[in-house]
Amino acid sequence: MDNLYQPIETQVLDIITETPTIKTLVLKPPHPIPFRSGQFMQLTLFGIGEAPFTPSSSPHELDTMEITILKAGHLTEVVHDLKPGDRVGLRGPFGKGYPMKKFEGKEILVVGGGVGLAPLRALLYALFHDLNKYPKISIKYGARNPSELSFRQQYEEWQKLKNVDFECTVDRGHAQWEGKVGLVTELLENTGIDLTNAYAVSCGPEIMLKFVTLKLLSVGFKPEQIYLSMNRKMSCGMGLCGRCNIGPYYLCKDGPDMNYAKIQVYPDVFG
């Protein structure tokens, strides 16, 4: 029987500094690790431990795997000190991933907050890969300030794609910032999305997910049309260790992207 607790040793090929607090690890696994967008990996820092992260690279390009990580605690501080050539461990992929079949033929509203754009980028790559299957892809992104916008050099390229639009905002701007200032929920007022034929997908901090959900509901989305990337502490990633539940659902095996209709009745959805 395979030992599923054993990490696969993986080399850090490169490290991209996205923002002052966010870095992307470019990893070269010993063999390709196929995954679906939205599925996550358990990343081991030698001697430190593990934490779950969703790849930010395309599920169609498996030579390397990219994982984009915000410095938020003990383990991620060690991630930020990694250098190219260092070794880390990987387990996975785990989780269900986004319901791509269900998304076909639908307009997709993608709402990201901060480092939450990272897992969504894997979804975007998957959507872009079959662009003609989706009548519209609308990306709304918010960050705390202009320097915290991740993947900035890609926005222009995304906007040029057929039926794709991109809009971003920052909570607080500065003198040179000419873009929008305000919370990401403000971008959800007039999306032009056909509510009868759409799904909204969101990833970001829990407090942002809460207000994005409330806003989406208020502009006419139904709970069934909303997918949220939920955050819970995980240890095993396989539905065994018991801690990542929302109601009867275990985010590691039933999520981490959950249909809001399924989880809305549970008291601790938004912490």
């Binding site: 934490a51 938020a72 605690g73 003990h74 383990l75 991620t76 829990e206 955050n231 819970r232 502490k233 240890s235 260790c241 018991g242 801690r243 990542c244 929302i246 601790d268 912490g271």
Partner: peptide, 19 residues
């Protein structure tokens, strides 16, 4: 582990769903 411990589901950044 025990689900009664405060650290059981505490995440980086301090968020605890069952505070």
């Amino acid at each position: 582990d025990s689900c009664f411990f405060a650290g059981y589901s505490r995440m980086a950044g301090g968020l605890t769903p069952r505070l």
